[in-house]
Nucleic acid binder design. Structure first.
Lengths: 274, 274
DNA sequence: AATGATCTTTTCATGGATGAAACGAAACTG
DNA sequence: CAGTTTCGTTTCATCCATGAAAAGATCATT
């Protein structure tokens, strides 16, 4: 590519268009008009020398090169966002965890947030694993030690699952329409026939608390929940370790460090209590 | 700062102005006029919310905040330069070493460069230590193991110094006007009175080969030089180890890896020969 | 097949960013 | 200390990137 022609500002616009999935969708994010965005995208493609998008009638779709570029520029973005802060670390710390851990962290939000000043927190609750190496998330909670280089890992503890309900008499299971190990385990059970189904794991807890169903929950969630008791033994197949993962370079920033320590403390006390 | 106002393109212009040391000096690098550069710099300062420059009559001088920003953006630049290359690694690999090691590497340029394709090499021969953590240099050769995180180190060998000349009868020393350990050592010698002086270490070798002076040289340079012989024993105070230092993340890029390996081989064979 | 919806792209008038030239300020120079 | 050089800044006419509007393209729906 000819990097002399590459306008850095266009990279940001590319980021917006790539994320929004099209020109018109990116208009509100960028403050630029669709024609301008279209022209800038052509300029980026000319500069990097490759097809970045497939122009479909319903919008733009990233090519493989485009996906690659998106990941790299997303990395740049987080660095640029913290540029003006002169040693105070990133302006927004992203926390990526499964929905249960996110739930617990949200309950303890005050302990995590206290004294952070202008730093904002952003919870990314997604079951699929984000690519932390590209710093799409600064702090991650994972169920296995990542093999990638440049990541700092700390073992938090061990997570166990069990069936929970308001009482043994509650029979039907709640089914969670997500591809998680616990959902897969439940689907494989013979007696889970007439299950209620929810799309969000959090609603499974709500239903269980309402006394309507039994739900597969991590013990650190189920045991802490008033009114719920274990209606099955712990499920060995679902047990796994839990790791706190950070990008190597950023974990020494004061505000990142503080958030890591607090999450670690919260998580440890959870597992100690269980 | 208000990152919504920050124009990424302005960051590149900042980089040029900061490096050039002023607006007019940055005109040729950027293709923008001085008035425009002045306005863009004001915009950057407004966006990051701080004074980046001291406007002196002879040009711009960076404030502490400005220095900080420069280092961070220099990091961004190397990442952006390799953006369009889609997995092929950085477009330009920077090699930072002392002048003697640079000299040797330049002599072996073909072995290093062979089969690199479009990747360009850039030798940074500076006696002062560059900040490799900010990726201003991708590959560095240092005389001690750096303590910073995220750097991969490989010990190359041990460097010894001695006095060299075309014969024992050559008495005067050549003085090198650079702040290096060897120059300091020579200045501390009592019998270095009527020395010739050069500013570039490389010229000291030229003078010694011409039979005019004796010079303090690393043995891997002096021994390999036709017509030069040792006129002093090795100087123990100047002996030091030599390390090959890389940024942790980039050393696995194929083209970086290749250059590292070749430099390592060249350096090893140097020290084995000595 | 026709209609509508939802995109992108083209057209074209406009305004804001741009740079040439003039100006001003400070530091060398003899 | 005047002359000269070397910067940055201001001014202002110019021009190019920009966005509104229209056109074009494709899919969804009836």
């Amino acid at each position: 590519m000819d990097e002399t022609k590459l306008n850095w500002e266009d990279l940001r616009l590319f980021l917006a268009v790539a994320r929004a999935g099209g020109l018109s969708a990116a208009v509100s994010d960028t403050g630029k008009s669709a024609p301008t965005l279209g022209r800038r995208m052509l300029a980026v493609e000319a500069a990097v020398g490759g097809e970045l998008f497939r122009r479909l009638p319903r919008g733009y779709e990233l090519t493989e090169q485009g996906e690659d570029l998106l990941a790299r520029i997303a990395d740049l973005e987080t660095q640029i966002q913290s540029l003006g802060r002169f040693g105070r670390g990133p302006a927004v710390i992203k926390i990526s965890a499964g929905s249960w851990m996110t739930y617990v962290l949200c309950r303890h939000i005050h302990a995590i947030q206290d004294g952070l000043g202008a730093t904002r927190l952003q919870f990314i609750s997604a079951e699929h694993v984000l690519d932390i190496a590209h710093r799409e998330a600064v702090i991650g909670i994972r169920n296995r030690r990542p093999e990638q280089r440049g990541l700092a890992c700390r073992k938090i503890g061990h997570v166990r699952f069990a069936g929970y309900a308001t009482g043994k008499s509650v029979r039907p299971w709640v089914r969670v329409a997500v591809k998680t190990p616990s959902a897969a385990w439940l689907a494989a059970q013979p007696d889970s026939g007439d299950a209620v189904e929810v799309t969000s794991p959090r609603n499974a807890l709500d239903l269980a608390c309402a006394g309507a169903v039994r739900a597969v929950l991590p013990t650190f969630v189920g045991d802490a929940q008033e009114g719920l008791l274990r209606v099955t033994p712990t499920i060995p197949e679902l047990s796994h370790d839990q790791w706190l993962v950070t990008h190597d370079e950023e974990r020494f920033q004061p505000n990142v460090r503080r958030v890591i320590d607090r999450i670690y403390e919260i998580a440890r006390s959870l597992h100690r209590g269980a």
